[in-house]
Design a protein around this nucleic acid. Structure first.
Lengths: 183, 183
DNA sequence: TTCTCCATGTAAGTAGTTACATGATTGG
DNA sequence: CCAATCATGTAACTACTTACATGGAGAA
């Protein structure tokens, strides 16, 4: 069995999702879209090759389990896979926080704008974070359900998302108060 | 002169930086690294082709201005370029907030970890945001300098960055208190 | 019957980075 | 004289997305 293989982050995400009980490629994609999509995305075209890699490495085992005549391949994590998943967070040194936000870029250049459009842009960025925070708050019951089954960390990442979008809204409000005070 | 050309975001970033007074490709890269790099990055290999596009579109004008025998090409924004930069934020509908954070992904899966490594990971994520917030706070004097010259929006994006990293730290602390109380 | 969901897989394209290639200037 | 900085440009590569291709199952 291969050990300490160099796996890409998408492959670890797939491994982690299989570890949490996602069985098929399709289910992994759906689970990602319902959980970590706010800080990590993955497309179908990455999932199926990753599944192949992970199986070749002995980190998951797959078997055909068609539903009627519809083909389907389901996977389970192996003990080596669980070990790899536990070792992963310890290994890597750096934890890059990569943010790509066109809204903030536009705001950065907004001094070139007239007051009206500038305020509109600020409002759009504020609204975006406000809506995102509301969406994340609506997921809280699901996270609380997971906590009762012993998974407390998904709730932490959810609270982080809520916290930073609320912080963005607050920063927009503070700025708006300041510019309307100063004229 | 070409109008309402479809420019990519990197090209608008380059245009915006020329508008703020960055003259050469090298200076644009340096300015990006000192300002918007926390929410947008750009590499040299994107800047020089963008400069060519922008000049072809009539949004900037360039002329050779070597320093001694060292070749150098400096650019200025044109009135059309300024107009394009003002129209840009109005046009596009969506403002995607793209976050890619391996730290949060690892935290999401951290229930599979032993308590020790899990706490270490939480500490690493907390420290990362704490350091980032401190770095951003250290930039505040520069932003205040820009404000006195009439550029108030760079200060807003700086405060947003500070706010959300402080919010991440708070979320980590709240979680740590909770698990030490319950565990 | 028709829409949505379940399900897998890949080819082609886009976006971006890293590394290479080159060389002058400035400051210690 | 050596290191850091200023300066431009591109080829090769990596990562990722979109779109295509296919089709069964279940519900309305």
């Amino acid at each position: 069995v291969a050990n300490d293989l160099e796996l890409s982050t998408p492959a670890y995400v797939v491994l982690g999702m299989v570890g949490l009980g996602a069985r098929s490629g399709y289910e992994i994609k759906r689970t990602v879209d319902l959980s970590i999509r706010f800080f990590w995305t993955i497309s179908q075209a990455q999932i199926y090759p990753s599944l192949g890699q992970l199986e070749a490495a002995g980190y998951i085992t797959g078997r055909d389990e068609p539903l009627g005549r519809r083909p389907r391949r389901v996977f389970e994590i192996t003990p080596e896979g669980e070990r790899a998943l536990r070792v992963w967070p310890e290994s890597a040194g750096e934890l890059p926080f990569e943010l790509r936000d066109i809204g903030m870029v536009k705001l950065f250049f907004a001094d070139a704008l007239d007051p009206g459009p500038a305020r509109a842009l600020l409002g759009a960025v504020r609204r975006r974070s406000d809506e995102r925070a509301a969406l994340l708050r609506s997921i809280r019951p699901t996270a609380e359900g997971a906590e009762e089954e012993g998974n407390v960390f998904p709730g932490l990442t959810l609270e982080m998302g809520i916290a930073f979008h609320e912080a963005m809204v607050d920063a927009c409000d503070a700025f708006e108060r300041r510019i309307s005070r100063e004229g």
